[in-house]
């Protein structure tokens, strides 16, 4: 990694767009300052030599857990729809996505 001074700061509006989350102008200004501080802090990991070190995805000594592919009871349609913000005819209502 390059040194801190070479790093571009996070463009919070661009990242918020990737996260599908609007920011208003005030939030964007506050977050820009805060995120610059946080990113600058986490960048200290670049000091370490991690050549040849295996990454850890999780700390448990288990991998590739399989189970029998059996049908099991799950939520009913009614239960699955019970918390929907909008529903009709047993389905979730969403904005039109195909013209």
């Amino acid at each position: 990694m390059a040194s801190n001074s070479d790093q571009q700061s996070m463009d919070v509006n661009y990242i918020a767009r990737l996260a599908r989350m609007n920011l208003d102008a005030l939030e964007a200004r506050q977050f820009q300052t805060q995120m610059d501080g946080i990113v600058d802090y986490v960048r200290q990991l670049s000091e370490l030599d991690v050549e040849g070190v295996e990454p850890t995805a999780h700390a448990a000594p288990i991998q590739n857990v399989f189970r029998e592919d059996l049908a099991q009871p799950g939520l009913t349609q009614e239960q699955a729809l019970a918390n929907a913000p909008a529903q009709s005819g047993g389905q979730f209502i969403v904005p039109k996505i195909v013209e």
Partner: peptide, 10 residues
């Protein structure tokens, strides 16, 4: 990189 440092911490 953080996942690798996680290994070092472990």
């Amino acid at each position: 990189r953080a996942q690798k440092v996680r290994t070092l911490i472990r």
